[in-house]
Design a protein around this nucleic acid. Structure first.
Length: 504
RNA sequence: GACCGGGUAGCUCAGUGGUAGAGCAGCGCACUUUUAAUGCGCGGGCCGCGGGUUCGAUCCCCGCCCUGGUCACCA
């Protein structure tokens, strides 16, 4: 470390700016490799090509008069051949002061070494920035998971696969926007700070606005605002942005996560199933070039159509299988019978839980993990779906589905409840659950009721977890692997320790 | 929140109740096409923090902090 500072001072003495303001590359390293990396030694000899590029030094190999640098632009790497008699005395003195991790620009002719390595024969060297701290070791790299998340920049420097994950993520976002835009959906941004958090059953983060002296909540979902927009006549609308939920963290849960929500007027939940299939197949095709993805040693096919099963039927079958006895559909309809069934399955049931919540709990406990290939689980109990529309012939059931893939929930969609009186009753039921100790129960939102009273067209809406989709497409098994700066407990930058992540 | 594992050099990791170890990285020298370069030499540590047991603790005991995984809740 001291040596690096000494080298920086030596550069200054040479009149070399250790942090110059700009450099003019002709091409990125990635572009140079793309354009010329396949050319043979003879071809490079016959048609000499000079290039000018820049990157971070990932290796220095010195052999007396023959010296090699490996530069990276974060996407590709290229070797640079440095010899004293090809450079000006100034540039060679710069070379002697380089450290692993420094940023440099080079200009030179492309060729292949005796070992066929594609290489730039440096004729000019520009110093671009000093790396004062040692980078992780080149062979084992950076494997400490905590440091990888806290100091993602080091992870990106040393682990090339990490860059790929975030390139996939970027393409997923672009493909989703393109898909929806092409179908007439308007992208909007709605409040992330809300005075009444709503649209999902979850505990919010609380903050405070000083000038208004009011509490504000970080949104748990954009749902109620997007539906207000359908009231306003925006027939197709979507938002991709962060939601915040003040709950536990796990391999599938980060306190802030990115969700796509979209709403389509005049449609119901059955319309969204083929729509979702097409959206996912398209996103996969654009992001990774295939709709068959490897995940945890299994192959998951995102090719339509996906399997469809009713939630009650799945819960009933799974309970029957677990108990080795036939469970009748009625056993999930009455509260007493459902509670007795849950007890036999060793599931915890609170007094506030009705037959619907118990059925959902049975499904989650027994069925979720087994849903590896994409599966639409449809027809949820009304009790766990305060914003969904009931089936015309069955008021205890709503028109709702969740899409499960690889054992986790990827999307949640339903025919939107647009009857203000019924919505009022649902909110009141939620308030009773809240009074019964359920902190995730939905709050009353009178302005939302009023909006519905102005008339919301029939519509179907869906939320889709972008982080989880990226996990699926990149074979990532922790949500932290697809979020650049996942939340970490703040940690001081101690002696010898590196810096902190987003928890700072 | 519960359970299991981890915290030793910049990085990756060994290790022991009695002066703290390796590889890589760093520094010096040699070397004109190497690529985990090689060879020789040299530096480098509150062994997570606090207490206890002990003549003596990095090691044993207790507590705490941080962290990875699993489970519970959630998308």
């Amino acid at each position: 470390m001291l040596q690096r500072r000494t080298n920086l001072e030596e550069l200054r003495k040479l009149g070399v700016a250790p942090y110059p303001n700009r450099f003019d590359p002709q091409a990125t390293i990635h572009e140079v490799v793309e354009a010329h990396g396949a050319r043979s030694a003879e071809a490079l000899e016959a048609g000499p090509t000079t290039t000018r590029t820049a990157g971070r030094i990932l290796a220095i190999r010195s052999f007396g008069k023959a010296n090699f640098l490996v530069l990276s632009d974060g996407r590709a790497r290229i070797q640079v051949y440095v010899r004293e008699d090809s450079l000006s005395p100034r540039d060679f003195r710069i070379y002697k002061l380089l450290d692993f991790g420094d940023w440099v620009g080079v200009e030179g002719r492309l060729f292949r070494t005796k070992t066929k390595e594609f290489t730039i024969w440096a004729s000019q060297l520009e110093f671009l920035a000093k790396c004062l701290l040692p980078l992780p070791e080149k062979w084992h790299g950076l494997t400490d998971i905590e440091t990888r998340y806290r100091q993602r920049y080091l992870d990106l420097v040393v682990n090339p696969d990490v860059r790929r994950v975030f390139e996939v993520r970027s393409r997923v976002m672009a493909a989703v926007r393109e898909f929806l835009g092409a179908r007439g959906f308007l992208e909007v941004e709605t409040p992330m700070m809300q005075s009444i958090p709503g649209g999902a059953l979850a505990r919010p983060f609380v903050t405070h606005h000083n000038a208004l002296d009011i509490p504000l909540y970080m949104r748990v979902a954009p749902e109620l605002y997007l539906k207000r927009l359908t009231v306003g006549g925006v027939e197709r609308v979507f938002e991709i942005n962060r939601n915040f939920r003040n709950e536990g963290m796990s391999a599938q849960h980060n306190p802030e996560f990115t969700m796509l929500e979209f709403y389509q007027a005049y449609a119901d939940y059955t319309d969204l199933m083929p729509f979702t299939e097409a959206l996912l197949a398209d996103a996969a095709q654009h992001a990774v070039g295939t709709d068959r993805v490897a995940y945890g040693g299994q192959t998951i096919s995102l090719a339509p159509p996906f399997r469809r099963v009713s939630l009650r039927e799945m819960a009933r079958e799974a309970a029957s299988a677990r108990l080795g006895a036939d469970v009748a559909p009625e056993d999930l309809r009455s509260r007493d019978k459902a509670a007795a069934l849950a007890a036999r399955l060793h599931l915890e049931v609170t007094p506030a839980m009705g037959a619907g919540r118990i059925t959902a709990a049975i499904f989650e406990a027994l069925c979720e993990d087994a849903l590896v290939q994409p599966t639409f689980v449809y027809d949820f109990p009304t009790e766990v779906s305060p914003l969904s529309k009931q089936k015309p012939d069955d008021p205890d059931t709503v028109e709702r589905f969740e899409l499960y893939v690889a054992g986790f929930e990827l999307a949640n969609a339903f025919s939107e409840l647009n009857d203000p009186a019924e919505q009022q009753r649902r909110f009141e039921a939620q308030l009773r659950q809240r009074a019964g100790g359920d902190e995730e129960a939905h709050a009353m939102d009178e302005d939302y009721i009023r909006a519905l009273e102005f008339g919301m067209p029939p519509a179907a809406g869906e939320g889709l977890g972008i982080d989880r989709l990226v996990m699926l497409l990149t074979d990532s098994h922790s949500i932290r692997d697809v979020i650049l700066f996942p939340l970490m407990r703040p940690k001081p930058v101690g002696s010898g320790q590196w810096a902190v992540g987003s928890g700072q």
